[in-house]
Amino acid sequence: MQLLSDIQVIFGGFRVTLAHMLRKPVTIQYPEQKRVPYPRFRARIVLTRDPDGGERCVACYLCSAACPVDCISMQSAEREDGRRYAAWFRINFSRCIFCGLCAEACPTLAIQMTPDYEICTRDIMDLVYEKEDLLIDGCGKDASYNFYRHAGIGVTQTRGEGLEETPPVDVRALMP
């Protein structure tokens, strides 16, 4: 009994491998035939701009803190009107593991991940991307979002001008 079922099982294995042998391979011939990644594929990191064309990044260091391999570094600065920005912003892609934690951490949606996965180079120093390499002319995934429009009180707008913000109430006018 045992013997027969053993033999049956072994022949079953041979049948399966033969079937797979005759099946069409799933290989993609890479350099000639490119794979189209999904839109939310997590590859090369970019810095996006807000709808008004300004930089979104406010140099809050949250991405740098979240990065498990410490590949993000920057220097924060402040414009005269109090708006913060990164004086320089550097990502070392030879260390980046594309985990996406920086994008998760970013409060202003400035740092985002793109499906561009082909970042090979002969010189390893080419993989250190500076701010000008990272910054793109677009809004990325959440096109209408502008951080300062929500939170920029005293910097870009006065109180009550922000989106989804009710105008300030004068408490003294509330007297009965």
């Binding site: 491998t17 042998m21 799933v26 290989t27």
Partner: peptide, 10 residues
């Protein structure tokens, strides 16, 4: 090649 075919590769 044949092992690759068994494993659905090329």
């Amino acid at each position: 090649r044949i092992l690759a075919w068994v494993q659905d590769r090329k």
